[in-house]
């Protein structure tokens, strides 16, 4: 259960430390190149495909950084791309029973009416409550931080759906026939965002990231200080939704 935790990369702390040492200028210098990199936007360079026969490495922690400031109002391209990629196409008479691997959420600041939209999905917690409660061991976290359901052992009890603070999981209610061969899914099992594990293992990025016309999503290895995502997290303020739960998410947000 104890996973390698991603170091806290709050840029303000680095700055305060530098300022405390009496070299405030250094803090700024360290931040500035990071900001520059973000502006250039070397976003989402395909990661390397893992060689056949090798296991997922705990040295890697896959993550996603979502810039809510860029997410366009009313756009559902990421949801469509996700559900196409993963074969989540069934439309049930009761729409509440449809699986949702991603949903769009609108936040309204009641004081000034400012609206923010953002996509919400499994946050790929480092300390996932869904894994804690699962009675069969079906809910699991891979070495590289991707949280999955092993449908071979899932009994559909839905404990994990109740435990997840983000409503990230869905139960499949009906028999299915149109599955993508790379994404098996079926009736009676719980499912959630897999971070497109079948694509990531091939060196591709998740379908949602690829589909976003605004470039609002950045995918990469949080543990690799030279990755675009780690650099941006090191240089701009980012948040984890309900960070007070201390689940240490792989999915981070910017501009909330």
């Amino acid at each position: 259960m104890t996973a390698p935790q991603t170091p806290d990369r709050n840029p303000r702390r680095a700055f305060i430390a530098a300022a405390g040492a009496g070299v405030a200028g250094l803090g700024f210098a360290a931040i500035a190149p990071g900001l520059h990199l973000m502006a250039v936007g070397e976003a989402n360079a395909a990661t390397e495909a893992r060689k056949a026969g090798t296991a997922a490495s705990p040295a890697v922690r896959w993550g996603l950084l979502i810039d809510a400031g860029k997410c366009a109002p009313g756009c559902t391209k990421c949801i469509d791309a996700c559900h196409t990629e993963n074969g989540v196409t069934e439309k049930l008479p009761d729409p509440r029973q449809n699986s949702q691997w991603i949903r769009k959420i609108e936040l309204v600041d009641r004081r000034d009416g400012r609206k923010t939209e953002l996509p919400m999905m499994c946050q790929h917690c480092a300390n996932p409550p869904c894994v804690d409660v699962c009675p069969t061991g079906a809910s699991m976290k891979r070495a590289d931080g991707i949280v999955l359901v092993d449908r071979h052992t899932c009994i559909g009890c839905r404990y994990c759906m109740m435990a997840c603070p983000y409503k990230a999981r869905s139960l499949v209610h009906v028999p299915l026939t149109e599955q993508n061969p790379e994404v098996p899914r079926g009736q009676g099992c719980v499912e959630s965002c897999t971070l497109c594990v079948h694509r990531v293992d091939k060196g591709q990025t998740p379908a949602c990231v690829e589909s976003c016309p605004e470039g609002a999503m950045l995918f990469g290895d949080l543990n690799d200080p030279s990755s675009a995502i780690a650099k941006r997290i090191a240089s701009v303020p980012t948040t984890q939704v309900r960070a007070d739960l201390r689940l240490n998410h792989g999915v981070r947000y910017q501009g909330l």
Binding site: G53, A55, M140, R142, A143, H152, D201
Partner: peptide, 12 residues
């Protein structure tokens, strides 16, 4: 299936 899903080993 266990090696692929749980350990992430592809291409077996």
């Amino acid at each position: 299936r266990d090696r692929t899903l749980r350990a992430g080993i592809r291409g077996e």
